[in-house]
Amino acid sequence: MTLLPSCHDVQTHLTEYLEGALPFHRRLGIGVHLLLCRVCSGVLRGLQALPWVAKASLKAPETAPEEARRALADVQALLRKGSR
């Protein structure tokens, strides 16, 4: 793979590759490397899955935590004070 970009080079530019921000010849070299390299294509799949994993894992819990309920109670107290 001496004519192709190295694994390090490919992985360094994977986000630009995914965003379509690379010139054609760079994109082509990385594309071919990804077809041939199992590890880099695995890293690419990981990057592509990350937004979904993050969204699903970091979604709001069913109930608000104590500090959030406290913030609401404080605001309600302020509103009561203001309406007097």
């Binding site: 709001a60 069913e62 959030a68 009561r80």
Partner: peptide
């Protein structure tokens, strides 16, 4: 200015609001 109504309005979405800020 009804603070109880405000609490009832916001409470169902409080976890969502807090989660977005915390992220």
């Amino acid at each position: 200015g009804d603070s109880d109504a405000f609490g009832d309005l916001v409470r169902p979405h409080l976890a969502l609001f807090h989660n977005g800020i915390q992220r």
